[in-house]
Design a protein around this nucleic acid. Sequence first.
DNA 1: GACCGGATTATG
DNA 2: ATAATCCGGTCA
Length: 206
Amino acid sequence: MVPSELLPPAFFERDAREVAPLLIGVRLVVREGGQVRAGRIVETEAYCGPTDLACHARAGITKRTRTLYGPPGHAYVFLIYGMYDCFNVVVLGEGQGHAVLVRAIEPIAGVDPGASGAGPGRLTRALGITRADDGAPLTGGGRITLHPADRPARLARTARVGVAYAGVWADRRWRWLDKESAHVSRPPARSIGRVTARPRSAPSRP
DNA sequence: GACCGGATTATG
DNA sequence: ATAATCCGGTCA
C-alpha cells in the first residue's frame, strides 16, 4: 500500500506553528531502491526563524542552516550530539528559517519491528534518513514524500523537548502529538492528580 | 585555530 | 545520572 496523493507545495507555505499540528497523521514515505519504508507522523515541533532562540535559524544563514533558510517543502536534516540525524520539513518561505521537526512516527511499512524506542534520532534510523537527504524535495521527485492523513487525530500540545537553554522560548507550547498514539517519544504531561512541575534549582542554602 | 555544547539515546 | 561522539558556531 503506497499512498499516491502528495501534500502540495502550498501546504508548506505557512508558519511552522500552523503546519506542525497539520502534519500529525500525515504519512512519511521513504523509497530506497525497491524498498519502501513508511510511518504515520504522531509528534512534531515548530521552530520559528531567527527570533526563536530554540531554532537553528538564530545563527543566520550558515553552511548548516542553508537548507533551513531554503525553499519550503524541502528537508532540513542535521546531526545532533554527534550521533543522530534529525528530520525537519522547511516551511513558510525561502529566507524565513521556519521548520517543523518530525519527532515520532507509527510504523506503517518496512520499519524494523525490533526498534522499540521513539524520538527524532530513532525515527531517522528507522526510515533510513540521513544528512544526505538534507535539502531534498518532499513534494515529489525525491525519495522522501509526504501524503495526506487518512484519519483524523486527537491532538495534545506541550512545550518543546530539549530546548531548556532557550529561555522564554522553551516555554512556548509548540509541540504537538497524537494523544492516542503509543509511539510518541514522551507522553504529554499529566497535570491531574500529580504535581509535574519541579523547581529549576535547589532551594537556596544559607 | 581551539573550545564549547547540543531540537538525543542507551545504559547504570 | 551519565557517557557516547561529531561538528558547527563562536571567539581569539
